[in-house]
Simulated scan of single mutants.
Amino acid sequence: MEPRNQTSVSQFILLGLSEKPDQETLLFALFLCMYVVTAVGNLLIMLVISSDSHLYSPMYFFLANLSLVDFCLATNTVPKMLANIQTRSKSISYPCCLTQMYFFHFFGIMDGVLIAVMAYDRFVAIRHPLHYTTIMSPRLCGLLAGGPWMVSCFISLTHILLLARLVFCGSNEIPHYFCDLTPLLRLSCTDTTVNKIFVLTVAGMVIATPFICILASYAWIIVAIMNVPSANGRKKAFSTCSSHLSMVVLFYGTTIGVYLCPSSVRTAVKEKASAVMYTVVTPMLNPFIYSLRNTDLKRALKKLINRKVSSSS
């Protein structure tokens, strides 16, 4: 059947995390709390880093960028889901669906690449400590942070342009709580081969490649740490990497399961669970993982609070 003889749907129905009405109140309260914690935590990290000159270093520069991306990633999906539960309306227009998908891929790609950039930063800091400031110059930091924004914009726009040529003439129910690419492709009644090839290509570029680079960086980091003569030195080096390594496991473990595993082993429930991990749980945990084990951040936060208390009194 030719696309020109078909009428594409004008809106989609987001079925959400659960189709049972009695569970929606609990889900609303849970995700509202998680979103508030995510927003407050990530915005607080950005405020602390920008207000303390002692934190003007490449590591905290990338951390501030990661907090911004995490906040935007959660904001792109969670408020719409909460509004749908509150209003009992699960519909989303076709343009809004494409817009949400664009920003989901934009910030999702940024998140993965920034995690890889932070791994490289830790590699340079531990492998070449004497030349760290020279290697991680402001110019290189700007390129490492600004380059992914351009690449992410191009890839996300290509996704949307390829999707816009498809026709959706059958069911308009998306078994998800936001407009994700994979479940949306299943609803198309036109050929999606080009879209699927591009998805696999992008997954290899922005998921598999950074993940391999991270593994290589940490292999070199472990070798360098084991050569440190003192036990305290090794402990301190491991401590600086443990927070970042935790985020690598959380983020890449779920995204690889969604975009690189065979479709035969994926189900709607698994896709939604994985999506919750990297769009809600990971952005929420980032501030805690990076701040609770970081004495400089805690010291800067206390200084900021004392300054605000002193100024108000």
Score class of each variant (00 low, 15 high):
Phe12Arg: 00
Gly16Phe: 08
Glu19Lys: 10
Phe28His: 04
Phe31Lys: 11
Tyr35Phe: 13
Ala39Leu: 11
Val40Gln: 05
Leu43His: 09
Ile49Lys: 06
Ser50Gly: 10
Asp52His: 14
Met59Tyr: 14
Tyr60Lys: 09
Leu68Asp: 02
Leu73Ala: 13
Val78Phe: 05
Lys80Phe: 09
Met81Tyr: 07
Ala83Leu: 07
Ile85Pro: 03
Arg88Lys: 10
Tyr94Asn: 09
Tyr94Leu: 11
Phe103Pro: 03
Phe107Trp: 02
Phe107Glu: 02
Ile109Pro: 00
Met110Val: 01
Gly112Arg: 13
Val113Ser: 01
Ala125Phe: 03
Arg127Asn: 09
His128Lys: 09
Pro129Gln: 00
Tyr132Arg: 14
Thr134Gly: 05
Ile135Pro: 13
Ile135Asn: 00
Leu143Thr: 06
Cys153Leu: 05
Cys153Pro: 10
His159Arg: 03
Leu163Val: 15
Ala164Thr: 09
Ala164Leu: 01
Arg165Trp: 13
Phe168Cys: 02
Gly170Thr: 03
Ile174His: 00
Pro175Asn: 13
His176Trp: 10
His176Tyr: 14
Phe178Ile: 09
Leu181Lys: 06
Pro183Asp: 12
Leu185Cys: 07
Leu185Ala: 07
Arg186Asn: 15
Cys189Asn: 14
Thr193Glu: 13
Asn195Val: 04
Ile197Cys: 08
Leu200Thr: 13
Ser217Leu: 05
Ile221Arg: 01
Ile222Val: 05
Val223Gln: 02
Ile225Arg: 00
Val228Asn: 12
Asn232His: 08
Gly233Asp: 02
Ala237Cys: 14
Ser239Cys: 07
Val249Ala: 09
Cys261Thr: 09
Cys261Ser: 09
Ser263Lys: 03
Glu271Cys: 04
Lys272Arg: 12
Asn294Phe: 09
Thr295Asp: 14
Leu304Ala: 14
Ser311Tyr: 13
